[in-house]
Amino acid sequence: MIDFLPSIRQLFAFVFFITGIYFLLSTAVGLIRFPNLYTRLHAGSKCLMAGGISVFMGCIALEGISFVSLKLIIILAFLLITNPIAIHVIAKFDNNYNLIPKVYTKEDFEK
């Protein structure tokens, strides 16, 4: 019974790592292909933090309960607190630039 435990743990780690790779690659594609600045902020905050949480949860599932796991949880909590603050500060910094996003009306879709 105790022999099944590392294999189940590795399977959970693989699932978390594949989810993290998917979210991080979609972050890069979103940063390249989004047309506007305020949409790039979405790709830089939400998608990136989803990938980060997935990779950290994979590492925690691979480690188990120990002191290293607590250090990983501390880094994850620090990242969860500081990255929205950084994105919010960048969004306030945009206010100086008068970047008005282009508004699509109904005639543009009918063309």
């Binding site: 940063l31 830089g44 990136l48 910094f93």
Partner: peptide
């Protein structure tokens, strides 16, 4: 993924674009 995101630092229209891309590559 970081090399793909460096395209936005290389060819960003304005300066906050480069800041957002720099934050993403750092994480």
């Amino acid at each position: 993924s970081a090399i793909l995101a460096f395209y936005r630092v290389f060819k960003g229209p304005s300066l906050p674009d480069r800041l957002v891309a720099m934050n993403s590559i750092g994480v």
